[in-house]
Amino acid sequence: MKQIKGARGRLGFQIERSEKRLLLEVLQLYPMIPADHQKLSKTGQRDEDQQLLEEALAEQRLENRKQLEAMLNARNRFRKIKGKESYQFSLKTSEADWLLQVLNDIRVGSWLKLGSPEKTDDFFAALSEKTAPYFWAMEVSGQFQMILVHALGKHS
């Protein structure tokens, strides 16, 4: 996937057919971070505040999931380029930022599933037939994230 010129302030991208399949496949995994993973404070917080935070994050993820379904099912989201095995699509900056949040949830959630390895050696130690899909999801979501971050950086 690479950035191309976008029309009317939008961010334009060109994506190969195989990359598009990867993107749609990895997005199906959203959400991956458990609702109770995030803590409001390390040094103690009121239970009701923590509960409110978890509820707000859960609501946000539900809303994101709905928005994601709408995006994945939008007929004209990806436009095939004539004579090529690739597609064009564009995003508003707010959509790109939102997609980044979704992809990072998948990346961090996959990392948690791997047991939150700290160092490269720990990553390899965590690798097994069972955990391999989480490595895949972490790497794939990370690749798309970097393209979006750079596109947003150039745009601002």
Partner: peptide, 17 residues
């Protein structure tokens, strides 16, 4: 609280102390 929530929306490890 607002900022922590915003940062956690992006899945960053953020807390308030």
């Amino acid at each position: 609280e607002h900022y922590v929530h915003q940062l956690q929306k992006y899945s960053l490890h953020a807390t308030m102390e």
